[in-house]
């Protein structure tokens, strides 16, 4: 399947597909001087497309009989608005949180949907246009990059801290960090603080990791299915089509489900920031 002259073996193929387009090779696990251009490009493009389409609908929205697309967007708006009303118990916060939740849903769904493009199509286009000399590696799904998902979940963490401080004020928030959930006895302070820090970390990491894991695994399985076709046998070719179709249909569910879960957890975490222990 890979369009290069010397056919790579399976592990080379997969490693190539899991390499990001970066400004330089990353040596350590965390290196803040490295940037994944492909992740950024596709996530910004998907965010821009999603926001532009929603903006077009919003600008032409009428209170009269809505068109089909307007009705679809309104359905989404109503749904997100209802959810945020149930979860976030603050009128003022909802003015930002509800639109944010809708953006997150649309954006994540669009980014996840990039997984539906054939795994080798971007590389083929780059090869045909001759850009593969500049863009030596390229991953198209931003949510299959941990940076993409952790970036969003840290955004949610920032919002959690912001609303904790805004609603309970700094003193109340610090008091809660030390005195909940076990009690306000000074001996319990370290345990309370430790548990709260773990809770915040777990929320953020699990939020980012869940989406990343789902999309990364989905991408990997698409590659393995593509390798079936690369065996160039009738069996491989048939299985590529059958299994690829089944996995793609199943993946539609995962794409939307993960976007929905990310949106709901964003709402839930921010909603929890509004409630005292």
């Amino acid at each position: 399947m890979a369009a290069s002259t010397e056919a790579p073996n399976a592990s080379e193929y997969i490693v190539h597909h899991l390499t990001h387009l970066t400004n330089k090779a990353q040596k350590s696990v965390i290196d803040l001087t490295v940037v994944n251009f492909d992740t950024l490009f596709w996530s910004v493009l998907m965010g821009a497309i999603g926001c532009f389409v929603m903006w077009r609908v919003a600008r032409a929205a009428t209170a009269g009989v809505p068109g089909r697309f307007q009705a679809l967007v309104e359905l989404l708006v109503e749904f997100v608005n209802d959810q945020s009303k149930n979860i976030v118990n603050n009128e003022e916060s909802r003015k930002f949180v509800a639109p944010l939740a809708m953006t997150v849903f649309v954006w994540v769904a669009l980014m996840n949907s990039l997984d539906f493009l054939p795994v080798d199509l971007p590389a083929m286009i780059l090869g045909v246009t001759g850009l593969d000399h500049v863009i030596h590696a390229h991953r198209i799904v931003p949510t299959a990059d941990l940076n993409g998902t952790i970036g969003m979940s840290l955004g949610v963490l920032v919002l959690m801290l912001y609303y904790n401080i805004k609603i309970k004020h700094l003193g109340g928030f610090v008091h809660e960090l030390f005195c909940a959930p076990f009690g306000s006895h000074p001996l319990l302070w370290p345990f309370n603080l430790l548990l709260n820090l773990i809770e915040f970390a777990a929320k953020s990491v699990s939020l980012g990791m869940r989406l990343f894991g789902n999309m990364y695994a989905g991408e990997l399985i698409f590659m393995l299915i593509a390798l079936l076709g690369a065996t160039a046998t009738w069996w491989g070719f048939g299985m590529h089509m059958v299994v690829g179709t089944i996995w793609a249909i199943f993946h539609i569910l995962i794409v939307l489900l993960q976007a929905f879960i990310f949106m709901m957890l964003t709402l839930v975490y921010i909603g929890q920031a509004h409630e005292g222990h």
């Binding site: 350590s28 965390i30 290196d31 001087t33 490295v34 950024l40 993409g148 970036g151 955004g155």
Partner: peptide, 9 residues
């Protein structure tokens, strides 16, 4: 690998 991408994201 975590890098500066997540801050931009």
């Amino acid at each position: 690998n975590l890098n500066a991408t997540f801050i931009a994201q």
